[in-house]
């Protein structure tokens, strides 16, 4: 279900990801156990899982911020753990909290990448930045500082900043976390629209079921550091795996002893 390459100004040659037998330990605690899956070029791949299941650690391996204890992560033909890979592959990471540079205005946040990599004159950088701001309806926020923005706007600026990089690979870490449902829907629409505009490969890490099942071409479920299942969204709608079913459609059991304890404590 990969999208065709387009020739919009921000389009780049897309790349896939190949994760093979990835294991990660921190102080003898294994966070990722023998994780393997592929993300095909041009697709939107959602990695879902409960909090603490290792999603963000996995994402950090893809961007090269962590190195595997064993196994490998490859982006296209390059090893993700090699710092040189970031020079060869345009990779954009939208952090959960945005990670905007607080000392720079929104415009300068977006212009930092092209300026530092000398991707044209100041005029062409301006065009590029304004184009990205326009896609995300942020033209009026260009002169603002990150501290003046709402949570949703910060997320959109982070996406715009990633877009300016003309990425071949878009990585989103919990793009709808801490947002209201309307803003969450807007962000998911933006992710879909960006793929249409740029044909870029997107890996979305989330525990937002509706986001994942609505935008993804394929979904993987990770639990306790292990990949539990990989498939198209429809595969998960009628899953027979009780753990996945419980994660996707959680049912609160009020007869659970933990709730009894809470009740007693309240009395």
């Amino acid at each position: 279900m990969s999208a065709a390459n387009t020739t919009t100004p921000l389009a780049g040659k897309t790349v896939g990801i190949s994760i093979s037998h990835l294991t990660k330990q921190f102080n003898n605690v294994t966070v990722l156990h023998d994780v393997s899956f592929d993300v095909h070029p041009g697709e939107i791949f959602c990695l879902m899982g409960p909090s603490g299941s290792g999603k963000t650690v996995l994402l950090k391996h893809i961007v090269g911020l962590e190195t595997p204890t064993s196994g490998s992560v490859r982006i296209g033909e390059y090893d993700a753990a090699d710092p040189e890979t970031r020079a060869k592959v345009h990779l954009a990471f939208v952090f959960q909290a945005g990670a905007l540079f607080n000392s720079l205005s929104v415009y300068d946040n977006l212009a930092l990448y092209p300026r530092e990599h000398r991707l044209g004159s100041e005029v062409s950088i301006r065009e590029r930045v304004m184009y990205a701001l326009q896609i995300l309806s942020l033209e009026k926020a260009a002169g603002k500082m990150p501290s003046e923005l709402s949570g949703g706007m910060k997320k959109r600026v982070a996406i715009a900043r990633a877009l300016v990089m003309e990425p071949q690979l878009f990585l989103y870490d919990e793009p709808t976390a801490e947002l209201d449902p309307v803003m969450g829907a807007t962000i998911s629409e933006i992710i879909g629209t960006l793929r249409e505009h740029t044909a870029v490969t997107s890996l979305v890490v989330t525990h937002d079921r509706s986001l994942a099942l609505s935008i993804a071409d394929r979904v993987a479920i990770i639990m306790d550091g292990r990949i539990r299942a990989v498939g198209v969204p429809d595969d998960f709608k009628h899953t027979t795996d009780p753990a996945i079913a419980n994660f996707l459609n959680p049912v609160v059991d009020i007869k659970n002893p933990r709730f009894k304890q809470l009740e007693n404590a309240n009395e």
């Binding site: 961007v63 970031r86 990471f93 952090f95 909290a97 905007l100 930092l112 990448y113 990089m165």
Partner: peptide, 25 residues
């Protein structure tokens, strides 16, 4: 304080993913 807060709030990670070495700027 500035660099530590940039680190804590993932701005340094953001620079690294943008292939901008923090030492340079």
């Amino acid at each position: 304080a500035e660099l530590a807060s940039m680190n804590v709030y993932q701005e340094i990670d953001a620079l690294m993913t943008m292939n901008i070495p923090p030492e340079r700027i």
